[in-house]
Amino acid sequence: MSLQRFILKRTLSIIPIMFGVSVITFGMFHLTPGDPVTRLVALNPDVTAAEEAALRQRWGLSGPVWEQYLDWISNVLVGDFGQELQTGREVSAIVWRRLPETIALGLFGWAFALVIAIPAGIYAAVNKNQLGDTISRFLALSGISIPNFWLGLILILIFSLYLGLFPVLAPSRQSLLSPEMLWYLILPGITIGTASAASIMRVMRTSMTEELNKEYVTAARAKGLPERTVILKHVLRNSLISVVTLAATLTASIVAGSVVVEVVFNWPGLGREFINAINQREINVVMAITLFTGFFVILANLVADIVYAALDPRIRYD
C-alpha cells in the first residue's frame, strides 16, 4: 500500500470513531436519569407542565432518543451547539472564543515538553547509569507523579508571589500574539507540559538506549564518525519516531491537563469554561466542549499516525 492510500484509509477510519464519540457524548447526557429540562424544572417548582413541554420542544428533548440524537447531530454538523440555558448565548460562539486560548496554552506546553525532554533524554541515554542519568530519571519519575494542580500552585507561590517574576492574573486584554503573552504563558505552560516532558524523556531514553546498541551505530562508530554525528544524525532521528507514537497520547493528556491547569491559573480557555459549565449545569456547553475534545484527540491521533508512517520507512501499511 502506498503512503497516499494509507493516509486515505486512515482518514476514512476516523469517521466511525467520530460517530462513536458523538454517540457517547450525547448518550451520557440523555440516557442518564433526569434530562436537562427535568433538572431545570426541579429547580423551579413553578414551571407548568405546558411550559415544560414547550421547553422540551425548544431544546429538542421531545420524541424518541434517536430522533433527538439526529436533531442534535444535524445541528452540530453545521456548527450549531444550541444556546446556554441560563443566558441564551450561542454555545458555538463561546467555544470559538475560548479555543485559541487553550490552543496557545497547549502548544506552549508541548513546546516546553519537547525542548526539555529531548535533550534530557539524549543526555540520559548517552550517559546511561551515571549520576546525571539517575537524576534525570528521578526527575522524570517525579514529573509523571506530581499532581499538576499541586505543581501549578507551587509555581505560582514561588515565581509569582515570592519572586514576583510572573503575573498572577490571567491575560484578559492582551492579544494572543503579543510578545507579553509569553510571560503569561510560561507558568501554566510549564505546569501543563511537565507530565508530557517526563513521559517523552523516559521514552527518548529507552529508545535511544536501544538504538545505541544496534549494529548500524557500531558500524558508524567503527567508520570513525564523530560520536556527535552518530547521535544527532542517526540515532536521534530513529528515536524521535517513538516520540511521535507517543504524541497522540500526550495530546490527550494536555487536553485533560488544560482543564485543571486553567482552573489553577484562571486561564480564560475551554478547560475553565468546561468546569464552569459543569458547575452551572450548562449541558450544551459541556457537550460542545466534550465533543470538541474528542474530535481534537482523534485528529491528533490521525496526524501522529501519518507522521509516523511518513517518518518510518520500515512501517508496513496494513
Partner: peptide, 19 residues
C-alpha cells in the same frame, strides 16, 4: 406571574427564577 417572564429570551432564566 413569573412564568410569563420567560417571554422573549427563549429560555427560562434560572438565575432570574431564583432571584
Amino acid at each position: 406571574s413569573r412564568h410569563n417572564a420567560s417571554d422573549n429570551n427563549q429560555t427560562i432564566n434560572r438565575r432570574n427564577v431564583i432571584a
